[in-house]
Simulated scan of single mutants.
Amino acid sequence: MAENNSSSTAGDAPRNETRFERADRNFAEILQELRVTQAGVQILFAFLLTLAFTERFASLDTVQRATYVTTLLLAVLAAALFTAPAAVHRSLFGQHSKPRIVRVSSRLAVIGMGVLVFALAGSVLLVVDVAVGRTGGIIASAGTLLVCAGLWGVLPLLLRRAGKDEGTGGTEGTGPDTSDAVRPAGPR
């Protein structure tokens, strides 16, 4: 007999779903999120790949070349982290491992976002350094880090706290018989 779990999100009616139904839903949500981030990473990666074949690339100094290579490798790592959930799902398909897949996929996505922050900051550093100078590049890169940290880290924490204060947040996946094992880690 399937176990039923009732969970709700802020403003939503309670859901009556088994842990595997919840895992299926959570995995679909993670995949939707990854579609957004993957497109950005692919565009960034393509941009970085083309830079090495431009005429101006030969004029980059040592710091700019190191920034370029580091940023390129960070973009590759982010792309790998964002595509890994599909590979994990494919390798465990049909083994009733969806809750584990969701856990691992969520962690991969969170790590991927962290790597992406540095890839974006590195790209901004390189472009602004070449366009206006090193000081401007460092300032713009630091600004990029702050904006991403604020929007991707601080804002979700503030929203979670506000939801808890209102008594409506943080309730998804916390009903009776609910396992945190199928709830993605990190900000929701």
Rank of each mutant, 00 (worst) to 15 (best):
V128I: 12
L77G: 01
R25S: 11
R56C: 03
I138M: 11
R100V: 12
A109L: 15
P176M: 10
V63D: 13
R161M: 07
N16A: 13
E55C: 02
L159M: 04
G153V: 09
T54W: 10
A162V: 04
A13N: 11
V36K: 05
W152R: 02
L125F: 15
L44M: 07
L125R: 14
V110D: 12
D24Y: 12
L48F: 04
R25W: 07
L34R: 00
G163R: 01
V132G: 00
E55Y: 09
T67A: 15
S123A: 07
A86W: 10
L81G: 05
T54M: 11
F45Q: 06
V147N: 00
L120V: 08
S106V: 01
V104A: 08
A142N: 02
L77T: 12
T50D: 12
L49F: 03
F53V: 10
T70V: 13
R160E: 15
G153C: 03
P187L: 11
D177W: 05
A66R: 13
G133C: 04
L74S: 09
V128W: 01
L145F: 00
L126P: 05
T144W: 05
G133D: 07
I30G: 04
S91I: 01
L44C: 04
H89V: 04
T71C: 06
G112K: 06
A46P: 02
D165K: 15
R103F: 04
A162D: 10
A39D: 01
E166N: 14
T178A: 14
L158P: 01
L51Y: 11
K164R: 15
A46F: 02
Q42W: 06
G150H: 00
P184Y: 11
N16C: 05
R100Q: 13
E3S: 13
S179C: 07
E166V: 01
G153D: 02
I101V: 15
T178R: 08
G94N: 03
L116P: 04
G186E: 12
L77V: 11
A52Y: 12
S141E: 03
G169T: 08
R90Y: 04
P85S: 02
S59W: 09
N4S: 11
T178L: 10
P156N: 02
S105E: 08
D24S: 13
R65A: 06
R15P: 00
A121K: 02
V41R: 00
R15N: 07
